[in-house]
Design a protein around this nucleic acid. Sequence first.
DNA 1: TATGAATGAGCATTCATTCAT
DNA 2: GATGAATGAATGCTCATTCAT
Lengths: 214, 214, 214, 214
Amino acid sequence: MTAQPRAHLRADARRNRAQIITTATRAFVDNGPDVPLEEIARLAGVGIGTLYRNFPDREALILAVVQTSMGVMLTKAREARAEHEHAWDALARTLSTSRELSLTLRVQRLFSPATVAALSADPTIRQIRNELIKVIDDLVQAAQREGSMRPDVDTGDVTHLFSLLMLPSTHRTPSEIAEMSYDRAREIIFDGLRARPGTPLPGRPLSATDIYPD
Amino acid sequence: MTAQPRAHLRADARRNRAQIITTATRAFVDNGPDVPLEEIARLAGVGIGTLYRNFPDREALILAVVQTSMGVMLTKAREARAEHEHAWDALARTLSTSRELSLTLRVQRLFSPATVAALSADPTIRQIRNELIKVIDDLVQAAQREGSMRPDVDTGDVTHLFSLLMLPSTHRTPSEIAEMSYDRAREIIFDGLRARPGTPLPGRPLSATDIYPD
Amino acid sequence: MTAQPRAHLRADARRNRAQIITTATRAFVDNGPDVPLEEIARLAGVGIGTLYRNFPDREALILAVVQTSMGVMLTKAREARAEHEHAWDALARTLSTSRELSLTLRVQRLFSPATVAALSADPTIRQIRNELIKVIDDLVQAAQREGSMRPDVDTGDVTHLFSLLMLPSTHRTPSEIAEMSYDRAREIIFDGLRARPGTPLPGRPLSATDIYPD
Amino acid sequence: MTAQPRAHLRADARRNRAQIITTATRAFVDNGPDVPLEEIARLAGVGIGTLYRNFPDREALILAVVQTSMGVMLTKAREARAEHEHAWDALARTLSTSRELSLTLRVQRLFSPATVAALSADPTIRQIRNELIKVIDDLVQAAQREGSMRPDVDTGDVTHLFSLLMLPSTHRTPSEIAEMSYDRAREIIFDGLRARPGTPLPGRPLSATDIYPD
DNA sequence: TATGAATGAGCATTCATTCAT
DNA sequence: GATGAATGAATGCTCATTCAT
């Protein structure tokens, strides 16, 4: 589910490409969206020219990173749906992510509105996003039919909450604490989504189209 | 509660200073953390020289912006505590913020890890943060005594969730929707924090010191 | 007739601007169209930032250089027309140029087709060029009425020949020789333009519009 | 008359080499002296590595292009001398060139002073140039003996004028017009060189050695 | 004190050249 | 020999910061 690696690439070149994406993902999360590309190249162990041969400019690299990251998320969601009998469990599983994976997911919160707008125009991104929304939409509806999710929310509410969870943790807390606080926040939020007598929510259920009007 | 405005400043100079901070706050939120200082100066209607006279470098300006923003938050929390009989309501009120205010709060999520680390070293920031934590700590304990908040969380869990809510909304959704999704997410999260039979949380209650080990 | 120096500029800034244009002109002629802008800045005795403050990119600098150069040429042609009774003499005088001036004129032959196309879109350039063509057109017609210029040519032929003369001399000949060969070539070409029994020319007289179809 | 094609080269390799030179000539004329070598390789249908195997660096390629171009010119001049009874006609014929040929000739006007200086140091270039000068020198002297060329010019004047004619046409005029203006300019210049009462020229006749002092 | 011009360090990007396949 | 991937030096350009007016 990676970003369209041009089909016939020499083996070493393909390795380089993957290596650059991995390194860039970590670098963006660690140092913010403005890491010098030269630093990414250096961390990836390639020359700056190699980075540019694979990604003609900074935006192309960001695009590949985000495509990969969203692809991973989509895969994760589909696996979760396939492996769990109850939709509720599948949703929870989609976000119960390893540290490794969370790195990939958090990348999506890093970029400026302008960059995000540019990314949203990319056909691959749009397609992955739409498929992801479809999966989550399925799960949300199923969970509500199962009676496990409160009926006064819709997919837009759920994706919004999911996207909040993907926040990079700002404070340099030790990683054990960071992971624990992520896990606990996720469970608290899921408790908030659970079907049971609760506060009526303001406004109206937000659909996926409310949040991503395209 | 602004950032240490040097005591005796000519009225117009003080106005300049405040104007720059306000403009910078909006510029950071709108255009990301890398807005050129010259653009901020231009938007504030002053020369770049004037900006630099007030804030010796970029970090100083960011510092002032964040100090102001956190100061507003602290004031808000104290007001909420003073005006509400029940701690639970005070907590909810602290986050039920006007659009205007949310601008101020979201600024805190904008900067790179390195910048945030630098900010965390500033004594004024630390003091405001500690006082804010103290207020929230009070409210959390009171709410738990009142029986409205689940007993298996601690202040660190709560501040973490609060900080998630301060996310700038990434998707260029119409502001009415953005506001609604913020309000709904906040309520869902509060429902998750409510005291009632729910899922046991993983790990252990996180205290403020777990999250901000200082 | 320089390139629109923004009206109110501090005296030193205006000096800088002029100095950069002069230096750039010489640098383009001496080192070709790709001189590093940093070298121009260095030769002009300013920082690279100053150059960029005055000319936002390389194209803007080239534009100013060419505008200035064409403005000088236009001024020269008008002076020649005003000071000479016979149109023929005015035409000759327009091209009998000091070394200093020839530097300015030769700049026009330096740039790539793409750059020239971009320059041709500039309103100031177009206006200067049109006025220059008008002056030469006047002189050509007057010279033909006077009987000094052969009747089977038109303004386009003349401007084409003029533009040939503006060629930078390729071979590093001593400047005395270079100047002499320029003067002699000019006179030979003018002899070819003189009205007297000569070879019939192929094709048809070329008007200014043939050469600059806009 | 190509540039020293190493004697024993496999047929396909020789074809490659010729193909690259042809392509490079057109690319230089069309896109200016800075066309990336990779683009030339692409246009020639070979890999960049093959280009480099044939021409160890950019200068070597330019050298080969110019050698070829000057060789063509020399051949042309010799043919003209052989085929015309009158020297005057031979000179005229040397420059009455097909569009195809003019491409080859114009290449000589493209490169920066520094590059030209480097080219001038190449023994093959020098030899071709000297032979070319010798042919033109012969023709000029013969034409003057024949009484068709004015006696107050020398070979240096003539080569200078010839070199002016080799200008790439800057303005994107339709090729029919460009060709016509070239032909007409050539005839006007030849009229200026014709022996008949005319203006006395400034300075003194310029010999080939004046212009190419070597 | 306010202004905005000057400076130059830093990063993005391109492309000549080398070298593994 | 041919190919095209990798390298890194060179250059364009931006912007934080300083300083003359």
